[in-house]
């Protein structure tokens, strides 16, 4: 059933990582991803991998859950891995017809696979340990400087909040409508693509109609509660950076410095 899909993937907890500020996590995550791609040799790659794995361990969420986050893009990992394997230069290891595998290719493939896998898993650290609301708030505050360029930061954040609130509601609604149409004999499980797409019409139209109805209700409810955009708005929850955020930043920066040092000290392989 559609209802079973979990959204946001947030897994509540009290680990060190959970307790970090969402803003800290976002900034450090971006930096970490940059450094994952800056690694030029195995030593620095090993360093960043260990750091990522340690962070994952510290979330106290089963490692299996992180592997699951990889499943979605397994196909992409394999394809890009293979692609890189055959497009390298250097010592030829194996050759058949038009296909050659070189040592450079092997290195490239290895790096690409590790990088994408790490990228997915550390991103999962953010979404697993931060509630969607905190995430939205943090994004709103981080993006605040963009208002100078007339980016409607508050509006974007409000849209995200409302989307997060209503996605589960609409999923449940989809489920109900599907059941109602199935009860009238709608066949959504058999036939070719065209038939299946056609079978969706009786579900999609009521879903649109109901979304518009909900939107107009919600707009009225927001008006009743004096919503007037971001102007003059205050916040109940204002989070401040704490000591643990500083520690996290110091440790991360040290590791990132280590990556740069390793990159300089040891020869690059890609």
């Amino acid at each position: 059933m559609v209802r079973d899909i979990t959204l946001g993937q947030f897994m509540p907890g009290t680990s060190v990582i959970h307790r970090l500020q969402a803003r800290t996590k976002i900034i450090l995550l971006i930096a970490l991803i940059v450094f994952i791609f800056l690694c030029k040799n195995f030593i620095s790659l090993l360093l960043i991998t260990l750091f990522s794995l340690l962070t994952i361990l510290m979330t106290r969420i089963s490692f299996f859950k992180y592997l699951k986050s990889l499943r979605v893009i397994l196909f992409i990992i394999i394809i890009t891995g293979l692609f890189n394997l055959f497009y390298g230069s250097g010592v030829i290891l194996w050759q058949w017809w038009q296909l050659t595998i070189t040592l450079g290719g092997v290195y490239n493939a290895l790096f690409v696979i590790v990088r994408i896998a790490l990228l997915m898993m550390v991103s999962a650290v953010l979404t697993y340990t931060t509630s969607p609301t905190d995430l939205t708030d943090a994004l709103e505050r981080l993006m605040k400087p963009l208002t100078v360029f007339h980016v409607k930061v508050h509006e974007i954040a409000m849209m995200m909040t409302i989307a997060l609130r209503f996605i589960p509601v609409l999923l449940e609604e989809t489920d109900k409508i599907m059941n109602a149409q199935k009860a009238r004999g709608a066949d959504m499980e058999s036939g070719g693509i065209i038939k299946r797409v056609k079978a969706l019409i009786p579900v999609l139209i009521p879903l649109f109609v109901s979304s518009f109805r909900r939107a107009s209700d919600l707009a009225m409810a927001m008006e009743c509660r004096c919503y007037n955009g971001g102007k003059g708005r205050t916040k109940m929850k204002v989070s401040h950076f704490k000591l643990n955020d500083l520690f996290a930043a110091i440790i991360s920066v040290t590791v990132f410095a280590g990556v740069i040092v390793c990159n300089i000290l040891f020869p690059a392989v890609i």
């Binding site: 609604e173 109602a180 149409q181 009860a183 009238r184 019409i201 139209i205 009521p206 109609v209």
Partner: peptide
């Protein structure tokens, strides 16, 4: 099972939300 659904008709709560 579709034949069962034709013989046992089911009207859901707020059925007007299924009109399309």
């Amino acid at each position: 099972i579709r034949n069962v659904r034709f013989r046992v008709g089911m009207v859901f709560q707020y059925p007007e939300y299924q009109l399309f």
